[in-house]
Design a protein around this nucleic acid. Structure first.
Length: 208
DNA sequence: TGGATTCTAAACAGCA
DNA sequence: ATGCTGTTTAGAATCC
C-alpha cells in the first residue's frame, strides 16, 4: 500500500479538500464524497451575479449565433461557470461527472434514470433546451461506464420503470478525480471565493 | 501520430 | 400500440 493508493482511496485527504474539511469541522469522508458540502455551499445553484459582473451577458453574446439559436458549445474555460445563469453554455462536465453528482446528491445514493434526468435538468438548465439526445448519452454512460452499477430493487419497491443506479465504490475515486480535473469543479469556485488573492489556475485546462 | 476517452446518433429488444 | 429503459455498435471529436 503506497501513498498513491492512499490518495486514490481518499483523494480529498491529501488535496486542498482537506482545507475544506478543516473549515467545515466534523465533516467525514462520506459527507464530502456525497457532495452534501456542495449542497450546503449552494455552489451549483447560486454563484451570485455580482461575483461575475456583467461577464455572463457578454459571454453569451460572444457565442457564435446561428439560425434558430446559439451553437451548443462547452462553456469557455476563461469565464467562471454558473450553470443556472449560463444556460446557453454546455456544462464543462462529462456526462459521467453529471451522473456522479446526481447520484451522490441523492439521499439513498441511488437513483432511477428518470431522477438522474431531473437532477441534471434542475441543476443545469442548459439541458432544458438541449436536443433530447443528451438523455441517450446519459443512458449510454450508465450502461457502458463501469463506474455505475444497477441496484436490485427491494421487495415491493415501486418506483416506476427501470433500475436504480448507484456508484461503484471501487470507481468512486476515479469519478472524484475526474470531477476535480474540471476547471469549474466547485472546489475551484470555493477557492476563488475564499481566497481570491492566492488562487492559481496554473495547470488547469485553459489556464496554461 | 496513435491510443484512450468522451460524445452523439442510431438501432433494437424488453417491459409496463 | 406506445413510450421508457437498457444495451450495443459506430463514427466523430478531443485529449494526452
Amino acid at each position: 500500500m503506497d501513498s498513491d493508493d492512499e490518495e486514490l482511496k481518499d483523494p480529498l485527504s491529501s488535496s486542498c479538500f482537506a482545507e475544506m474539511r478543516l473549515e467545515k469541522g466534523e465533516l467525514d469522508d462520506d459527507e464530502l464524497t456525497s457532495l452534501s458540502w456542495l449542497q450546503e455551499t449552494d455552489l451549483l445553484k447560486s454563484l451570485s451575479v455580482d461575483e461575475q459582473g456583467e461577464d455572463g451577458q457578454k459571454e453569451n453574446e460572444a457565442f457564435p449565433k446561428v439560425e434558430g439559436g446559439l451553437l451548443p458549445q462547452t462553456h469557455p474555460p476563461h469565464i467562471p461557470y454558473n450553470p443556472q445563469k449560463h444556460i446557453n453554455s454546455k456544462p464543462p462536465y462529462s456526462f459521467s461527472c453529471l451522473i456522479f453528482m446526481a447520484v451522490e446528491d441523492s439521499p439513498m445514493k441511488r437513483l432511477p434514470v428518470k431522477d438522474i434526468y431531473n437532477w441534471i435538468l434542475s441543476h443545469f438548465p442548459y439541458f432544458q433546451n438541449a436536443p433530447t439526445g443528451w438523455k441517450n448519452s446519459v443512458r449510454h454512460n450508465l450502461s457502458l461506464n463501469k463506474c455505475f452499477k444497477k441496484v436490485d430493487k427491494e421487495k415491493g419497491q415501486t418506483i416506476g420503470k427501470g433500475s436504480l443506479w448507484c456508484i461503484d465504490p471501487d470507481y468512486r475515486p476515479n469519478l472524484l478525480q475526474a470531477l476535480r480535473k474540471t476547471p469549474y469543479h466547485p472546489y475551484h469556485q470555493l477557492q476563488m471565493m475564499s481566497a481570491p488573492t492566492t488562487v492559481s489556475f496554473t495547470g488547469l485546462p485553459g489556464y496554461g
